[in-house]
Simulated scan of single mutants.
Amino acid sequence: MTWNVYLSGEIHTDWRDQIIKGCENKGLDITFSSAVTDHESSDAAGDGLGEESNAFWRDHKSAKVNAIRIQNQIKQCDLAIIRFGDKYKQWNAAFDAGYCAALDKPYITLHSEDIIHPLKEVDASAQAWATTPQQVVDILTYLLLQK
């Protein structure tokens, strides 16, 4: 059985690649999906709908266009991995976690111990909290290979 795993959150490190490569090395049957991870492309997603003089409306249109992809991928996933990095606040990732919770989609949070307190509600709804991509690979290995 192929699992669909949605990778959400921080885009400034290679955590996605680490998880994907780790799962490939284990021979896990997983299809990964993600939001657009190129920051400039994501910010410009709504530009084809017309130029905006106000940054709020540009962001608003792009967020709605990006939501088409994100909401469909979350609805189709078996599990989401939601990464919160240390450098920037990923409000979009918190929103994705809430969307998963509302849809009763299981998710695993991935973040350092430094931000446990601000993520307490997000972690409380998660099925697991990991601090490294390898821990996520280990969980996925257990879920897919355990008989």
Rank of each mutant, 00 (worst) to 15 (best):
I116E: 13
W91V: 13
A124V: 08
S8T: 02
A126Q: 02
T13C: 14
I139P: 05
V137K: 01
V136C: 15
E113P: 04
S125I: 01
I20F: 04
L49P: 04
T37N: 09
D43C: 11
T141P: 05
I81S: 02
C100K: 07
K21H: 09
T141C: 06
A67F: 13
K21Y: 06
S33N: 10
N92I: 06
T132Q: 03
L144W: 07
D138H: 03
Q18K: 11
K26G: 08
L145K: 14
E121C: 11
C77T: 07
A126F: 00
D59P: 04
G48E: 08
G46E: 10
L119R: 04
A102V: 07
A94H: 03
D114E: 13
S33W: 08
W91T: 11
A124W: 09
C23S: 14
S34P: 09
S34C: 14
G46R: 08
I81D: 02
E121P: 04
A124G: 12
R69A: 09
Q90S: 15
A67L: 12
T37H: 10
T31R: 15
N54L: 08
A44C: 10
Y99S: 09
T131I: 10
A63N: 15
D17T: 13
E52I: 00
M1S: 13
I139E: 04
A94D: 04
K21C: 05
T109K: 02
D104L: 12
E40S: 13
L144C: 14
D104S: 12
A124E: 14
L140H: 00
W129N: 11
I30E: 05
L144N: 13
K120P: 05
M1I: 07
C23V: 10
V137N: 02
T132P: 04
L79W: 00
Q90N: 14
K87E: 15
A44V: 03
T31K: 13
G48L: 13
Q127S: 14
K21D: 12
I11N: 12
W57M: 14
L49A: 09
D59I: 09
D104Q: 13
G98F: 02
S53P: 11
G48A: 09
I74H: 03
I139T: 08
D86V: 09
D59Y: 07
K120Y: 09
D86H: 12
Q18E: 15
E121Q: 10
R58A: 03
D47C: 06
E121M: 14
F56G: 10
D43P: 03
D17S: 12
N92L: 12
E51P: 07
P118F: 00
P118Q: 02
T109I: 01
L143V: 09
K147L: 11
D86E: 15
A126D: 01
T37S: 08
D47A: 11
S8I: 01
H117C: 06
L79Q: 01
F56M: 11
I11T: 13
S62T: 00
S53H: 10
